[in-house]
Design a binder for these strands. Structure first.
Lengths: 189, 189
DNA sequence: CTATATAGTATCGACTCGCTACTTTATAAC
DNA sequence: GTTATAAAGTAGCGAGTCGATACTATATAG
């Protein structure tokens, strides 16, 4: 039995317990923080309930309820899409962003991460990234990375960025955000 | 905002979703797997509902209910302590151990961990261990390590091991198990 | 024009989890 | 010994998640 697996399982338990506690202080549930965090990090193609459901691996019914709560608390706002009458666009409100910031400041895990020695940081980041990518591939699930690591991400001759699916230009900020359409580069096995 | 923190938060979400799915297949809830895993790894001082509650950071009421379910499903057994009439000792039954094994074989995270390159393994293990230890210290919670990393762990002259609290001899297997009484070595700040 | 797929909502039932109240046993104070 | 106090565990309540089903509305393919 791998030690790494045990450590990850333990980390998951600790993170979950901490999330329960921190969400509780704010009068919310753990899943609500997950939604807020996602909305803080996703790009403009990916701010819909359906995308949240795929990202958090839950059903649309569940997401619908979470969204309802967050809207009631004025942490996010809803806006129906102009192009497609079925889809709802969600936006993180200032109150939501503030809450997220306040919550993360209380996080012992966040504080522990900040204490990671600088020479350990990059290797740790790389190992975890690879681990997540493999886990998601084995799960047959979407990869959910940021634009700049997507196979559809184009670097144009003039140095600007473009999405290979929508052919829209992407800003530097865009390129660091999570996208539903993300697909990893195909690596040689 | 640290990438490492985001990766850990993401890993927690993925692990939780996977746990829901795998537990569901077995007709259980995620927390039940956590309890079984704990019982598979704890030592003989630590197989009580109270210890589970501290490890999983939940209340005794919650643990009591989980234990009831697991006993009904014949995955664990209860036995009242001979010395202290208040405490219940829990034992992982063969059925429970088999279920745990079956579940972990289905885990994409487990599979992803197995693919970690051998030269990344130790650094990753060390980083995660340090991270967890710091998070637990900052949380003011018990450290919950294995005997051999405890400040009460004694290596005797004849090479055998001993618990500095109970003064009982410990086998090699004992020394690799999780203990409620565990306290980290006091490090110079 | 008609299937068929997709986005989202509503509702139900099983379950968690924190909380309070309670019982039983151990331990400390005197 | 007696009494107070603490600790281990159980029981039951209420708020809330989460999966499932059924439903509406919109988009798209043939």
């Amino acid at each position: 039995m791998s030690n790494v697996l045990q450590l990850i399982q333990r980390l998951a338990v600790v993170a979950q317990a901490e999330s329960r506690q921190l969400a509780g202080i704010a009068g919310l549930q753990p899943v609500h923080l997950d939604v807020l965090r996602y909305l803080a990090r996703c790009n403009r193609y990916s701010n819909t309930p359906a995308a949240i459901g795929r990202f958090l691996r839950s059903t649309k019914g569940t997401v619908s309820q979470s969204v309802k709560v967050l809207e009631r608390e004025k942490l996010i706002s809803k806006l129906s899409d102009a192009k497609d009458g079925r889809v709802i666009r969600l936006r993180l409100l200032q109150r939501g962003a503030d809450l997220l910031k306040r919550v993360d400041e209380e996080s012992a895990i966040q504080a522990a991460v900040e204490e990671v020695a600088s020479d350990e940081r990059l290797p740790l980041e790389n190992s975890l990234t690879a681990l997540l990518r493999r886990a998601q591939r084995l799960n047959g699930s979407r990869s959910f990375g940021v634009c700049s690591t997507c196979r559809f991400f184009n670097r144009l001759e003039d140095g600007s960025f473009q999405c290979g699916i929508t052919h829209e230009p992407l800003t530097v900020d865009d390129s660091m955000r999570i996208c539903v359409e993300h697909e990893n580069e195909v690596l040689n096995a």
